[in-house]
Design a binder for these strands. Sequence first.
DNA 1: TAGATAATTAAGCGAATGTCTAAATTAAAA
DNA 2: TTTTAATTTAGACATTCGCTTAATTATCTA
Lengths: 97, 97
Amino acid sequence: MDAKFKAINDPTRREILHFLVNGPQNAGQIASQFDMSKPSISHHLDLLKQAKLIQADKKGQFIEYKLDKTGFEVIHAWFKTFSTYFEFPKPKIRIEI
Amino acid sequence: MDAKFKAINDPTRREILHFLVNGPQNAGQIASQFDMSKPSISHHLDLLKQAKLIQADKKGQFIEYKLDKTGFEVIHAWFKTFSTYFEFPKPKIRIEI
DNA sequence: TAGATAATTAAGCGAATGTCTAAATTAAAA
DNA sequence: TTTTAATTTAGACATTCGCTTAATTATCTA
């Protein structure tokens, strides 16, 4: 639990998560999008992995990262504990009969 | 944005938020539920307030705190940017005609 | 097998975080 | 008005965090 909130606390890590919405990327591709050393990005990836917000798949010499539903669901569940206090805006639906 | 993620990163602050789901409480009442000094709790309340996750209402000598929808909606919106990648479990609805 | 490439691990350092005690502020009560 | 109570502000200190460079591990290729 702590690891997940810690993971999303950092802006670089949140940006990594957003990049991965467009599909899996390997560590080098991710790092190339930041003005930051590769070891730093590697460390960020490690924290995201520990939080189960991303998954790592080793593909030969490369390591491919993608979003992991597991961690997101846990955060989402925490968030929903506040829905008794106030409802969040929902997408409108329309039913025609 | 950063302030909100920072605010929910700390376990004490998350616990404060949960206490306030049951209704407003003043600073002393909140502090009494933690094995921690009042100034520390006061500081946590300040960070939650800056993040617009809680609101403060001065009532005479007391200060009453309650949840603030503003901040929660911003976090919720961030979270929803990942819904294109995977859907989160939704409550089932049933329509009878 | 030797060399090059992808990525992580290790070590170190300044900045930010969370906690405490002591002091200050504000409002109620005697 | 003096005292008490509720709360915050200030200052100090240990821990954690995010970053860097250097070293290590693992894999591919010539």
